[in-house]
Amino acid sequence: MKTDSTTLQAPPRAKTARLRFPPRRPDPVAITPAPTPAAKSGRRGQTRRRVLAVVKHVCLILLVVVALYPVIWMLVSSLRPDGQIFSNPSIIPTTLHWENYTYGWTALTKPFSTYLVNSLLVVVAAIAGNLITCSMAAYAFARLKFRFQKPAFAFMLVTIMIPIHVVIVPQYILWSQLGLVNTFWPLIIPKFCATDAFFTFLMVQFIRGLPKSLDEAARIDGAGHGQIFFRILLPLMTPALATTTIFTFIWTWNDFFAQMIYLTDPKLYTVSIALRAYIDAQTSSSYGAMFAMSMVSIIPVVLIFIFGQKYLVQGIATTGLK
């Protein structure tokens, strides 16, 4: 890629919105809903607001049904015998075929808990890797001036544009020569090398949103880059780190291709590989068991989202492009 900086101009700052942000508020208290700016007083206004709220809720609940339909369908299907899943289009539960759960749990080489633990292991390591190394790389890109900064950043972005299918074979050969195929390392080590450019990019944006005066004040006090990063910026980045945690969790948990390529021993299989083992295009498939274990496996993902979303929203709130 040619990185010709002379041909393209940086976007000039638009003049329309001259509104100023108040100082940023990193504390969670700041995340209180904005008051409705509509009618301020009066009974009529209140009734109108109530009616409006009811309408909103009705619309939202309808949308929730549409959004959740697949999950409900999956749940109902996980409680049907295999033969009924595709011949019975109704979403009303007609049977409680719990055998899908008991069978699905033990149908493969190991109890399903093994795959849950393996996935968890990979996910936790991936999160740790992304948190540490992406934030470090982001600090360098956002706050330091160094040679080859532009090409380095450009290269980082190109890495997200290349389809995995053409680099997986060279990568596999690399890991194979290192003797690390059929271990979790090919899934974990890249995360400790900040290869997830998405998160680096996210954190670059975030750090650039933090006032530079903070660093400068610290530098005057004699702090080095390490101290500025660890003592000053990192604590302020908690929300961005939470965002990274949740997104890494979900993406790694659902990733199939890389895990399938690198893991060979069934004892090391992860949830996403195990779920495919119930289905075979040519012979019999255990759809009921697959749906049952799918339900089991989305529980951790949903839990982490519900508990993490407070930080998620907050994290991006202070990351916005600026």
Binding site: S5, T7, L8, A10, K150, F153
Partner: peptide, 8 residues
């Protein structure tokens, strides 16, 4: 060429 922009 987007790269130039992005890196900027």
């Amino acid at each position: 060429m987007s790269i130039a922009e992005l890196s900027r």
